[in-house]
Design a protein around this nucleic acid. Structure first.
Length: 223
DNA sequence: GTATGATCATGA
DNA sequence: TCATGATCATAC
């Protein structure tokens, strides 16, 4: 168990020291048991790395490293370095979204500074043998910021106009809106097509795998 | 239910 | 084959 890193440099040094270690090795350092699989422990890898790097624990609506303003995200990849999954960002507000602007949104704030930690996580590899890659800090460049903002504004407009039920995951260039719920019976409040209150599945914002793939390419491009 | 952490599993 | 839609655990 680590204390909280004092600086970005310390966070980078710690995260890069994990490169090449397996999840089993990191768990052993922390004296933690590795679950047989992730079916009932889907968040285990993220929580393991949070502990290892000294992120603030628990379910708080703030960055993993509050004093650094950095969010930690694991990124499962295959042997070719391609993301295996989309990346969850945050839940989407479905009511009272009238005056909300991009720069005040959770999506924008959460993505301002992210520590990405790639994990070689093909399903055939036992959990304890999966290997941590080279972590890197990322901040969206101007183009990325603009494209994310455009996706967000389109999705939020549709929610505002009562069209949440018609939003599919395929919509959006980089940012998508998909269910984020315990199960299909967990409903929340939203607005219907005629302005009437409805119940619907809670939604979350996710980064498409093609977008995180471009971040990896940008980071690890040869030359 | 909402927040945290995501991956599972199946339809296209 | 793979992205979308569905789901799992836990704290509060």
């Amino acid at each position: 168990m680590h204390s909280s890193p004092a600086s970005l440099a310390e966070l980078q040094a710690r995260s890069q020291a994990l490169a090449g270690l397996t999840l089993g090795q990191i768990a052993a350092q922390l004296q933690l048991q590795v679950p047989a699989n992730l079916q009932k422990d889907k968040g285990w890898v993220g929580q393991l790395l949070e502990q290892s790097l000294g992120a603030s624990a628990g379910s708080k609506a703030e960055p993993d490293f509050p004093h650094l303003g950095v969010e930690l995200k694991t990124l499962p990849i295959d042997r070719d370095g391609k993301p295996l999954e989309s990346t969850y960002v945050c839940v989407a507000p479905l009511t009272n979204v009238g005056g909300l602007h991009w720069h005040d949104s959770w999506v924008c704030r959460k993505l301002q500074h992210v520590l990405w930690i790639p994990i070689l996580a093909e399903r055939q590899i036992p959990l304890s043998e999966r290997m941590v890659g080279t972590a890197f800090l990322w901040q969206p460049n101007v183009q990325q910021q603009q494209e994310l903002q455009q996706d967000w504004e389109e999705l939020m407009e549709q929610i505002t106009l009562g069209g949440v039920a018609n939003i599919r995951g395929a919509q959006g260039k980089h940012l998508q809106l998909r269910p984020k719920a315990a199960n299909s019976r967990a409903l929340t409040d939203a607005v219907g097509a005629h302005g009437e209150p409805i119940k619907t599945l809670p939604r979350g914002f996710y980064l498409k795998a093609t977008f995180t793939a471009s971040l990896l390419a940008q980071q690890f491009a040869p030359g």
